[in-house]
């Protein structure tokens, strides 16, 4: 068995230390050692987007990264998005308002992808939204609520800035 490496990264603003073999994926590290079970694993081969997290501010698939690669990085998971226990992030709020989720399994990944997408495209057209969020799969909603939520969150985030 390959050596265990010690790991340290900032997760949602707190330093998280752990250990793992080099092959331990970032997704598994976040779920099992950082206890961020909002990181969902839907395919483990990079297609579904459920495991999306922000690494140093950019949306990435955490199933396609090894935890060792994120040593020293700053990670945000869905648990770290809301500003405080009473308030939701505008994207989270919009997903609720627009029925952007049913079973909720794809939701954390979607919310982080949408947040990152809107960061780069604050005022997208519907077509841009549909292609912009095409890297995340949802089997429940038919995307209607998710597209609407992205629209609403874009407006809310623009207004908030």
């Amino acid at each position: 068995m390959a050596d265990q490496k010690s790991l340290s990264m900032t997760v949602n603003g707190r330093t998280r230390r752990g250990r793992g073999e080099p092959r331990l994926t970032l997704a598994d590290f976040l779920r099992e050692q950082a206890l961020c079970t909002g990181v969902h694993v839907g395919c483990e081969h990079g297609v579904c987007g459920s495991c999306t997290v922000l690494m140093d501010g950019e949306a990435v698939r955490s199933c396609l990264l090894f935890a060792v690669q994120a040593d020293g990085a700053d990670i945000t998971t869905v648990e770290g998005l809301a500003p405080d226990p009473e308030t939701l992030h505008p994207v989270q709020e919009a997903f609720r308002d627009c029925h952007g989720l049913q079973c909720g399994f794809c939701t954390p990944g979607f919310i982080l992808s949408v947040a990152a997408f809107l960061e780069a495209n604050p005022d997208p057209t519907d077509d841009e939204i549909r292609h912009g969020i095409a890297g995340n799969l949802c089997r429940c909603t038919g995307y209607q609520g998710i597209v609407a939520a992205t629209r609403q969150a874009a407006a809310a985030m623009r207004a908030g800035e």
């Binding site: 961020c36 909002g38 869905v78 939701l88 609720r96």
Partner: peptide, 21 residues
């Protein structure tokens, strides 16, 4: 009424509890 879902506050914040959790 389109009552907002009671499930959502936990699910949009990553606090759902699925079997793998």
């Amino acid at each position: 009424q389109s009552v907002k879902r009671l499930e959502d506050p936990r699910l949009v914040t990553g606090h759902g509890r699925y079997v793998d959790d």
